[in-house]
Amino acid sequence: MMSAVDFLAWVRGPMFNIALIIFIFGVIVRLLEMLLIGRKPDYSEARESAFAGGVRTIFRRFMPADTGTLQRSTTVIFAGYVFHIGFFIVLLLFVPHILLIKDTLGIQWAGLPTPIIDAATVMTLLALLVLLINRLVNPILRFLSTFQDYLIWLLVFLPVLTGYMAFHHFIQPYQLVLALHILSVELLMIVFPFTKLMHTFTLFFARWYNGAIAGRKGVKA
């Protein structure tokens, strides 16, 4: 039987390397298989710059298209913002995470005080719960949702939850809960390239293509 300390060493060592390699190579392969298909040239006379349109849309889509959209999709927009912002605050501004990034990549930045991280974690968990309930209750989302949508929800929820539990020492020994936290992140990294989590990277391409197609026509998409 593996002890908690051994378990922690394993998830921090070999398992982390495996997850990191799958994540990095997976993302590269997925981006290449997308970009290598290519696209046909557009011979139509452009009204405005496609390039400028592409860049514009990358930024514009961080905001809802109009107030009508905001009114019709309020829950998913608000809970979506809170979840994404909260998740990135916790991921990138929690001091132990910054130290890990420093050890791995050699770059670092200033973190936020832990009470703020703690609040952001709770907000993120609540937003995720709202998004799950919305997915189960809203007729459009219930209709659209596949097994993957629920699996990804769980795989995103678990690192945030276990992180919170580890920070507050909810499970003893501490090494065990920390190991579970790291393992849940590794699971997320492993499935990342093969699921909708890829949108983290591909949405910039999608927005660029959409904005470039519209921009050529003089439409601010």
Binding site: R30, L141, T146, K196, H199, L203
Partner: peptide, 8 residues
């Protein structure tokens, strides 16, 4: 690749 099934 980018669709997250948000329903908007």
């Amino acid at each position: 690749n980018s669709c997250v099934h948000c329903g908007m």
